[in-house]
Design a protein around this nucleic acid. Structure first.
Lengths: 216, 216
DNA sequence: GGAACCCGATCGAGCGCTCGTTCAGGTTGA
DNA sequence: TCAACCTGAACGAGCGCTCGATCGGGTTCC
């Protein structure tokens, strides 16, 4: 199995690969829960060890530093995002509909994983250079995915987009508004957000006015 | 002078109000510089004291906790933003042009104050409930400002916006893409960003297609 | 079969250190 | 003289991480 760019191995004392996998899972669960609730710095390694039912020493047989736990958490989050995203949009031919589907799925994911997205934006600077690079790489593939849709739509004459990469970044970023500005969006439903953002973006980039989408 | 909502006083040992003001200024400068470079948690109070030429004890005569320094920094940032914003857009009658000006000025501010905006998004959760409330309040007035433009434009028949508040939040948020996704936007100029975002948003919310803006 | 040995996962007390905060004493100016 | 301000050594809580000890189970050898 080829490893993605974000998959630099974490040094471990323990040898058994299958066991490492299981333990890393436990550590992820505990890490995500605690980091989300208290933040990276306020969470102690001891707490994480306790939360996953391991001794501190044991925990440190599966990681080298506290930072590794954050990396582990990030990896799993992003992997799951990528998988869901691809599944929800593959096979759709019409760029406009595909973009709509991509937006909708991203917003649904971001809705279900609020804590994770928040963590991603707030604590990523706790990662070192190497960890950050991994995040960047994954993000770039994400953006590239949106960008491809934009390119296809532009070639088909449906979209009028001067800077596809820039716009892809913006669109993906905009989806995070639901998580990062949640406190100022109470009262709205996920459906309203999806509709509003989809309308804004599709109108914003359409070569002609996409009336059929508004009517439907 | 009436104090804004964010202006709950910080407890100090020192009495002289004018001196407090001056010292708080020094502390802000040092805090912004160091927090931006190293983050809140990695910056020590000692470093801040040194950077503003005060002894640690002296510093603690002007604040009660480290958190107070962050509050202080945030306050100043937001105050300056608000002032610039209002100045740049007041008096513009046409909603479309006013929105354009507001976007442009916000992006310019966010360009000049990258570190500050990043700090705002990354470290605000280090603040306690009270400090956060203050931030929220200021942000709401900001958003309200955009919302007003949207409302005026909608009444004038220029914009077609179903959820003005939601959209105002989105627009303001979108401006931060330039700071929060900077690493993925290298190579673009501020001017390109301004143009792309303005086009996206104005097209996105316009009742009719605003061709004149594109031609000009 | 079972004694002797080995391997590697587990454990948690505690080391070494950082960092926010305090306080007793010094300095200054009116 | 005394209030206001300044100073930095000292404090101690809390943290990440290490390391020697333990133990269950597999393997070897008689």
């Amino acid at each position: 199995m080829p490893k993605s760019l974000a998959q630099q191995d974490i040094e471990t004392i323990v040898k058994d690969q299958e066991l490492i996998g299981r333990r890393h899972m436990q550590i992820c669960d505990a890490g995500l829960k605690l980091f989300s609730r208290k933040g990276f710095h306020r969470t102690t390694v001891r707490e994480i060890a306790e939360a996953c039912g391991l001794g501190i020493g044991t925990l440190y047989s599966y990681i080298k530093t506290k930072e590794d736990i954050l990396s582990l958490v990030y990896r799993r989050i992003l992997e799951s995002f990528e998988a869901r995203m691809l599944e929800a949009t593959q096979g759709i031919q019409d760029p406009r509909l595909q973009l709509k589907a991509a937006l909708e799925e991203t917003l649904k994911i971001y809705d279900e994983c609020q804590d994770a997205v928040l963590l991603l934006y707030q604590e990523s600077h706790a990662l070192g250079r190497q960890g950050l690079q991994g995040l960047f790489d994954v993000d770039r593939t994400y953006v590239g995915f949106f960008r491809e849709i934009l390119d296809r739509g532009t070639r088909a004459g449906q979209f009028a987009v001067k800077e596809p990469h820039l716009l892809a970044v913006c669109i993906l970023f905009l989806c995070a508004v639901w998580d990062l500005k949640r406190w100022n969006l109470q009262g709205y439903t996920l459906e309203t957000i999806i509709e509003s953002l989809t309308t804004l973006i599709l109108n914003g980039i359409s070569a002609d006015r996409p009336m059929e989408l508004q009517r439907q």
